[in-house]
């Protein structure tokens, strides 16, 4: 059970990492505004906070 969930979270994580590298260097290269890469990376950071919150929610229970 722990392993299955681990693989799922791991996959989500790898996707986030790949998007964090690729999107600003592809879709957002021409968006010269705050709502381009600046906003995108800020949102990625918030997603990571949420991700860690969920992954660790059962720790110590």
């Amino acid at each position: 059970m722990e392993t299955k969930r681990g693989v799922l979270w791991g996959t989500v994580f790898v996707i986030i990492v790949i998007l964090a590298y690729l999107i600003p260097y592809t879709a957002l290269t021409e968006v010269h505004a705050w709502y381009g890469s600046f906003l995108f990376w800020a949102i990625v950071a918030l997603v990571i906070i949420g991700f860690n919150f969920l992954v660790t929610r059962n720790w110590g229970k």
Binding site: F13, A20, P24, F38, W41, V44, N52
Partner: peptide, 23 residues
């Protein structure tokens, strides 16, 4: 420019390794 934010956010994402290795 904003690449500096990306640089720091990639580090930030990497801290999630604590969720894997921490326990």
């Amino acid at each position: 420019g904003v690449g500096a934010l990306g640089f720091e956010i990639i580090y930030f994402i990497g801290v999630s390794l604590v969720a894997l290795f921490g326990p």
